[in-house]
């Protein structure tokens, strides 16, 4: 194992940490956007709390997806116990595997929050249109789901590689 290989685990952990960090940040921002819009609605009509809360929480999932990727990576690279001998290339691959989640997680959370805020506005005016209003933010989430999927598959795929 060359000296460079010592940094394999560093890269892998960096990827995992960013996967938890970046989408988490974005989700925090996104949920707060929903919260601000929601608080205004509640002031007018407190009975909408349940519906508005759901819309607020929708863009919160990216943070959770990031967490999942971080945990899967942790368990694969042996941070949670087990051996942590990872070559530099492998570490870089783990880092790359986390990228979809890091980037798409960030942007999709913010974009989804925009849709959520708009939907909260819809529900404020027409509470009975909640079912439709809920779908708009959920459409955005699709891409976060695709990203988490690719990251999961990539992280568990890298483990099987013999490099």
């Amino acid at each position: 194992m060359g000296s460079l290989d010592n940094y394999g685990i560093v890269l892998a952990l960096l990827g995992a940490a960013l996967a938890a960090l970046v989408p988490g940040m974005a989700s925090a921002k996104a949920v707060s956007m929903g919260g601000i819009a929601g608080a205004g609605v509640i002031a007018e009509n407190p009975s909408l709390f349940g519906k508005v809360l759901i819309l607020q929480l929708l863009p919160g999932t990216q943070g959770i997806y990031g967490l999942i990727i971080a945990f899967i990576t942790f368990s694969q690279i042996g941070v949670l116990g087990g051996s942590s001998e990872i070559s530099f290339v492998k570490g870089a691959l783990y880092f790359a595997a986390c990228m979809p989640m890091i980037i798409v997680g960030y942007t999709s959370a913010i974009r989804q929050a925009n849709a959520s805020v708009a939907s909260i506005g819809t529900v404020a005016k027409k509470p009975d249109q909640f079912g439709k209003a809920m779908i708009f933010p959920a459409m955005v989430e699709t891409y976060a789901i695709l990203a988490v999927l690719i990251s999961i598959l990539a992280v568990s795929g890298v483990t099987g590689l013999n490099i």
Binding site: I64, Y65, L67, I68, I72, T142, I145, V148, L149, I152
Partner: peptide, 16 residues
Amino acid sequence: LSYSRLLALGLATGII
């Protein structure tokens, strides 16, 4: 492909 969310959400519950 959209049904891949079945996998992603299912895994999310299990892993957390």
